[in-house]
């Protein structure tokens, strides 16, 4: 199928991009890798008047070390993330999840920022951003502001970004200490989106689990933290039994969807099973 007509601009700076977006008004839309947007346009599920393509905005690309945080440019492609030594060192959970996103060709175009801005609750990276307490740096006509992940994802495909704002970069705090990470994705075929996904980082300390961060994919209209399980794991002994017991509350407070891939109760069950597995893997309790 074929997109409806639109205007197209490809500015070279964030400032110009913001200006272009402002000029385009309500129906302007940012184009990043296009891997979510172009299929939507082809199916004529959206009719933007103008696309503001960020591909020429060099400052949006790449990863830099900023002390206790890693800063990932919004236009850094999934494939770049997978190859980046800084991300591998300081945010291995991002790598683990990105490796499960779509397929190699899609990862050559899709971007880290685009995945977060798209805010699909079935997307893998939002739960990771939430679990790692990342924050989003947005730029609009009024300048820059920083929004924590916990406030960024507002609803299904909806973020705290204003229509004239651009996601510039994502600040991912480095994990300090003995952390293990794992992303557990459950889907029916390899290429598909997650039915449920679990992003886990756990810190071990003297044979017990000191701290856990757990983000759930596709367990509600936005990514959610498994707070009850996190609490139960804090200070728990590092054994599979304790992990399983803690994971029993993984779905508490979630509102998973019911669709072709699974009814809500099945998803809740999966969240518990997968959380137990992901935590055990991250903590090095299982292979």
């Amino acid at each position: 199928m074929i997109p409806a007509p639109f205007e197209y601009v490809a500015p070279t700076s964030v400032a110009d991009a913001v200006a272009a977006l402002g000029e385009a008004g309500e129906d302007g839309k940012v184009l990043a890798g296009g891997q979510s947007l172009i299929p939507v346009l082809r199916l004529r599920l959206a009719f933007p008047s103008t696309l503001v393509d960020l591909r020429k905005v060099e400052e949006l690309r790449g990863v830099r070390d900023d002390g206790d945080a890693l800063v990932i440019g919004a236009m850094t492609r999934h494939d770049d993330v997978l190859r980046d030594p800084l991300v591998a060192r300081h945010a291995a959970l991002v790598v683990a999840a990105t490796a499960t996103v779509a397929d190699p060709a899609v990862r050559h175009r899709g971007t880290f920022g685009g995945a977060l801005a798209h805010a699909d609750p079935a997307g893998d990276l939002a739960a990771v951003a939430l679990a790692l307490d990342a924050s989003m740096v947005l730029e609009g006509p009024g300048g820059r502001r920083t929004v924590p992940a916990s406030e960024f994802f507002v609803d299904y495909l909806e973020t705290a970004m204003q229509p004239d704002e651009i996601l510039v970069e994502v600040r991912v705090p480095k994990l300090q200490g003995q952390w293990g990470v794992h992303y557990e994705k459950f889907n029916r075929v390899a290429q598909a989106w997650a039915i449920v996904g679990v992003a886990v980082a756990v810190r071990r300390d003297n044979g017990s689990l000191a701290e856990a961060r757990i983000g759930l994919t596709n367990m509600g209209a936005t990514p959610v933290r498994a707070r009850a399980t996190e609490a139960a794991l804090a200070g728990a002994p590092a054994d599979v039994g304790s992990v399983k017991a803690a994971a029993a509350s993984a779905a508490d407070g979630t509102t998973p969807p019911s669709d072709l891939n699974g009814a809500a109760d099945y998803r809740a069950h999966l969240a518990r099973v997968l959380t137990a597995r992901a935590v055990a893997r991250a903590a090095g309790l299982t292979g």
């Binding site: 172009i38 060709a105 899609v106 175009r109």
Partner: peptide, 10 residues
């Protein structure tokens, strides 16, 4: 790259 998901202008 999936060329159905890239605009010619890109």
């Amino acid at each position: 790259v999936k060329s159905c998901s890239v605009l010619a202008v890109q």
